[in-house]
């Protein structure tokens, strides 16, 4: 009896077993393949990794979970490629254009010759604002260009060790100088914003080519002409952009993550190059390009003849302010300049 029971059990088991593969096969056909399941396959994982998908990492900053960040190569390609090439080309091109302009037009002289009478053009605070911005800008421009082009231009001359010291010092100057620049920007924003708004003389100045192209042509202008206004708002707007990106580069990974830093760097450099290009023109016309211009920012006084030619409206306003012309109240400094 017991044996029969066992035999029956074994038979049932065998029967069940014979059906099992069939059942399993049926079930298997319903099981989707890994690719269909929507579960991550290894192939898909590698694709994700290449696209910057992060994993987890133990005992180290979570950001290190990213295995491959391809944006870095894009950053490298743009910085070493287009940015350096076209940036360098633009700086050389604009410098050569200015040199060409100088040989074609020559120094823009005072048509009437210096009158010997001086008028105060920029007060001390205005000059402080200008030189705070300008001085720090020069330092920032040179140290910044050194980081972008120094490897190709300065290292072959100075060698690696000397350049490294220079670059380390330059980096420090650049970091400190940035804040000086921002202070200068704030001063000139407060001082000159109202004088740089569009006025009725600007269109005439544009039509007259600013008097730059032909001797003897002097479209009237108030305190600042349209060219100066363009320069001014470029400094303010591009300066703010450079400052914003710069502050975030000085405090890396505080607000922005890696990809943000790469973008900030590109914007910072591109904007700075734009500013350098404008400044090449500004420095030229303020120094060797025009007779009698530079003293406005050194001792603050310009020749009355110069002022009448270039800022006729402003001179009239200054002279009308007081019963006596401004250059008399501030004393005539004849013989200077």
């Amino acid at each position: 009896m017991k044996r029969l029971k066992m035999l029956l059990a074994a038979g049932l088991l065998a029967l069940a077993a014979s059906f099992a593969p069939l059942e399993a096969a049926e079930m298997d056909s319903n099981v989707p393949t890994v690719a269909q399941s929507g579960k991550p396959t290894v192939d898909q994982t590698w694709r994700d990794v290449r696209n910057g998908e992060a994993g987890i990492v133990t005992g180290q900053p979570a950001a290190r979970g990213v295995l491959i960040q391809s944006e870095g190569e894009a950053w490298r390609a743009f910085r070493n490629g287009k940015l350096a090439f076209f940036g360098g080309l633009a700086i050389i091109g604009v410098t050569l254009s200015i040199a060409g302009f100088y040989f074609w037009r020559g120094k823009i002289r005072m048509d009437g010759g210096p009158s010997g009478k001086l008028i105060l053009r920029f007060k001390t605070i205005e000059r402080i604002g200008h030189w705070t911005t300008a001085g720090s800008f020069l330092v920032l421009a040179f140290t910044g260009l050194m980081l972008l082009f120094g490897r190709w231009i300065v290292i072959p001359v100075l060698g690696h060790t000397a350049f490294s010291w220079l670059a380390a010092f330059g980096k420090w100057l650049h970091n400190i100088g940035g804040f000086v620049f921002m202070a200068g920007l704030a001063i000139i924003l407060v001082l000159w914003a109202k004088d740089n708004l569009w006025d009725r003389y600007d269109w005439g100045w544009i039509k007259g080519g600013g008097g730059l192209l032909k001797a003897g042509v002097h479209p009237p202008a108030a305190k600042f002409n349209f060219g100066q206004k363009t320069q001014y708002w470029m400094v303010i707007l591009v300066g703010l952009l450079v400052s914003f990106t710069g502050v975030n580069l000085i405090f890396p990974y505080t607000v922005f993550e890696l990809h943000g830093m790469q973008l900030l760097h590109i914007v910072h450099v591109a904007a700075a190059i734009v500013m350098i290009l404008f400044m090449l023109g500004h420095i030229y016309i303020g120094t060797i390009g025009m007779e009698g211009a530079s003293s406005a920012m050194t001792n603050g006084y310009v020749d009355l003849e110069w002022a009448r030619e270039h800022h006729a409206v402003w001179v009239a306003g200054e002279e009308g302010k007081t019963a006596q012309p401004d250059w008399i109240t501030h004393g005539i400094k004849s013989g200077q300049n």
Binding site: K39, P40, V42, T45, D48, G55, I56, V57, G59, R64
Partner: peptide, 21 residues
């Protein structure tokens, strides 16, 4: 500083893989 790190992908899910980089 860690010069090397081990990153685990799909942690706790099917297809979990770890890579030392």
């Amino acid at each position: 500083i860690n010069r090397r790190r081990v990153v685990t992908l799909n942690d706790g899910k099917p297809g979990e893989r770890s890579i030392s980089v």
